Simulated assay, not measured.
Amino acid sequence: MQDIRIELREDKREKPQDMSKVKFGKTFSDHMFLMNYDSQKGWHDARIVPHGPIPMDPGAMVFHYAQEIFEGMKAYRTESGAIQFFRPFENIRRMARSGERVSMPAMDEDMFMEALKKLVEVDKEWVPSEEGTSLYIRPFMIATDVGLGVHASDSYLFCILTCPVGSYYPEGINPIKILIEDQDVRAVRGGTGYAKCGGNYAASIRASVRAGKKGFSQVLWLDGVERKYVEEVGAMNIMFKIDGKIYTPELNGSVLPGVTRKSSIELLKDWGYEVIEKLISVDELVEAAKAGKLEEVWGTGTAAVVTPVGWLTYKDETFEVEGGKIGEVTQKLYDGLTGIQWGKVEDTRDWIVTI
């Protein structure tokens, strides 16, 4: 494993006095991790440097052919002051799978983990301690070859940014309104749907803007082939409690394999719930709602952990879920996951990595 060179910032930034009110992704900590790759040297020049602009040639391939991947994870400060990660190797391995899909090199897992630990150690004062707060971590990789022509780049830059984030639910968990999208599609099987790359999110923006103008928080996507099966929400995976059982769309290649999704399934099974991963048609969902069998709906993702859904709209027909309130299973799942993440609940599954 390579040594990491550290260049400390002399003009440290002023930290917000109340971290619980910091907006998501707007305030960055003092430093960032950088490492370069090229086909001759492999990975080299691991360094932690002051956070700031990255000089880029306008001909760099990332700008023209979108060869880019990223991850999203968090570091949490426990009541005792310890700092810990939640299942970081799941994110590290998912980033390698994303990279493979778009022909980008994988970072050595141990090197990746060492970079995470060192960066958070250097900026440990930026890990907030207020209720519900955390340090969001954004690893990403971009193609840096200069030249026009569609092919895999020969060189890449790997970077990790960190930013403190306030509580996602400062006023309590309120169920959201979701629009089931029946025009645009996010991804198709055989495409990049299972990879965490920027193009997937760019493809989702138009429908999200339309939905936002109508008062919806997020869009629930249908599959790109038949426009029939529900897949995932804009920034989350989705789960349904129907007639006592938990259903979630199967990972068929166009659904992101969420770490929170995986953790939720494991917890739910431990608690005795039957969890079914399958193709779920929108007609099935509508039928369950009309029959009063759609008992709870929630999204799972790194940013919010668990998000209750109170209303689903499809083709101008709206279905209220659980009276527009958070359901029992949704609340239990949120409490269970966040309890482990913040060290309030014992980790019996080796999910936590402590600095």
Rank of each mutant, 00 (worst) to 15 (best):
I205S: 05
Q2R: 07
G301K: 10
A291I: 01
V329C: 13
F24L: 06
Y76V: 04
G272F: 05
G166F: 10
I173P: 02
K118I: 00
I238V: 15
V255H: 12
W311K: 15
E295N: 12
I4M: 08
L337R: 05
L222Y: 06
E7H: 03
Y201N: 13
T144D: 06
T354K: 13
S254V: 00
V62K: 03
G42C: 12
A203R: 14
E346C: 11
Q218K: 03
G59P: 12
N91E: 02
A82W: 00
E320C: 09
L285P: 11
D316T: 10
A75R: 15
F140N: 13
I92L: 08
V122Y: 02
R97V: 01
K262T: 03
F33A: 01
S134V: 02
L148M: 13
E274M: 07
L251R: 14
G149Q: 00
V146G: 09
P170F: 09
I340Q: 12
E346G: 06
N174T: 15
G244A: 03
G324Y: 11
Q67L: 02
P55R: 02
Y201D: 04
S167V: 06
E125F: 05
D30M: 01
I173C: 02
S80P: 07
T27V: 14
R101G: 06
H31L: 08
A211S: 14
A203S: 15
V120W: 08
G193W: 02
I173R: 15
D145Y: 00
V306E: 13
P16R: 09
L312K: 13
I178R: 06
C163H: 07
Y194Q: 15
L312D: 13
C159H: 04
A195L: 10
D335R: 07
V120Q: 04
Y314P: 03
S39K: 15
G258Q: 11
A195K: 11
L268Y: 12
H64V: 04
D145T: 10
G149E: 07
G198C: 04
